[in-house]
Write a protein that binds this DNA or RNA. Structure first.
Lengths: 226, 226
DNA sequence: TCGGTCAATAATGTTCGACGATTTAGTGGG
DNA sequence: CCCACTAAATCGTCGAACATTATTGACCGA
């Protein structure tokens, strides 16, 4: 218990705030395009303006919020081109993560949490719990990156910005699109567990092909005016 | 002139400080492992402690400086594994940038600055101006990314951390290694100018193969204790 | 003299309040 | 109805304060 508390206290206030905002986004409490008022947030989170600004700056660097001078912070909203650009960048990194995870994991036990996460994703998708689905999805990617053991990848891969994109499109997808998405993780996790780098790479590539197809099927109203 | 001044003033103080530190690193005025004192920097740069700390936080997020609690900020030093990990991450992104730049550039005129930059790199390498070489190299990558027109790539690709790695190894390379490195940029720029995406991709892949070879040839003393 | 202990110093982490600058909204006059 | 002007709200920066910790160097005993 004390370890948890110490760990929580050791992290700076701005990091805690940034995590809180990210979690609020995943759970739908904050929606893309929403205006973030400094006085409201400092009051709600009980921190100083300086710490909040530090957190917002951090989130802005990751493209989660957009800061415009004297106009405040807004949760970023991705237009269609940004989403396609993001997928182009994310795909090679995710494929690298999958290849490394498949090649690195020495014993099957370490892959067990990944398989469990994929199973939970299928469950959560079926039961329609979108907030939990997005949170679990993020855990899946974090695990995949960790398994690979490439510390630079963890720093670079834009998972938080992908959370943002998922938040935007999640509620507009059809059930079959959601099902296809969830199944993709199962295929990836299976390939990693089997230590099959080539298949893991192909699984991620196929997953992204499906996502691009879904994007093409979505109406323009899903995206802000570009 | 006023436009320049306005543009400089429009950017936040912390961004200016971060850029100044990055430039100092490229020019060798700051070396990996060096301790950054807040009082010294605030006095030299003429900014408040808050703005400086914001900049340091930003640089720490990009892995340029490492912050250790109550001990201050140090210019990061990459061990051998981190360098190899960084290359694994950077390669697919650089290849994507090259493919996009080759595919996107409609007219040859836009590629002219890239070819000029490659020529300048060959010159600077030959004349041994290492600081200018690294600065020009960064400009080359920035142009390559801009030409592709993928805004997410610019956000994700870890060019600053690559600057850091280059700073560490640049002075330890042999002339033939430096020559091979500089020639790689010429081949990339030429392929982009010819709108040959496949060749651009291969040129970058070959460039990275050469860099990995150089890394294997370097002695352990180049890297900090891992 | 050497090694260990301990207090003084310096640097950092965090927060707060203040000031000037700028955008936005609202208001009154033409 | 439109435009200039005022007022409110917000943001960027700075300086100061306080608590916490690492470092330094003096001091002391073996």
């Amino acid at each position: 218990m004390s370890e948890m508390a110490q760990e929580a206290e050791r992290r700076s206030a701005s990091d805690r705030v940034a995590d809180a905002i990210l979690q609020d986004i995943r759970m739908g409490r904050l929606v893309p395009g929403q205006h973030l008022l400094e006085p409201e947030l400092t009051a709600r989170l009980g921190i100083s303006r300086g710490s909040l600004r530090e957190a917002l700056k951090h989130l802005a660097a990751d493209g989660i919020v957009s800061l415009s001078r004297f106009r405040g912070a807004y949760i970023a909203a991705l237009d269609r081109k940004s989403v396609l650009d993001l997928l182009d960048v994310l795909e090679p990194l995710a494929r690298l993560a999958a290849r490394l995870a498949a090649a690195a994991s020495p014993d099957r036990a370490q892959c067990e949490p990944l398989l469990e996460s994929a199973a939970r994703l299928a469950e959560l998708q079926a039961s329609g719990k979108r907030g939990e689905y997005l949170t679990e999805r993020r855990r899946f990617y974090d695990m995949l990156v960790d398994l690979g053991g490439n510390s630079e990848l963890a720093r670079v891969i834009p998972l938080s910005r992908t959370d943002l994109f998922r938040t935007q499109v999640e509620s507009r997808q059809t059930d079959s699109q959601r099902h296809r998405h969830a199944m993709g993780y199962t295929r990836i996790a299976t390939a990693v567990a089997e230590h099959d780098s080539a298949e893991a790479d192909k699984a991620v590539a196929g997953h992204f092909a499906g996502t691009r197809e879904t994007m093409a099927e979505l109406a323009d109203e899903v995206f802000p005016a570009s």
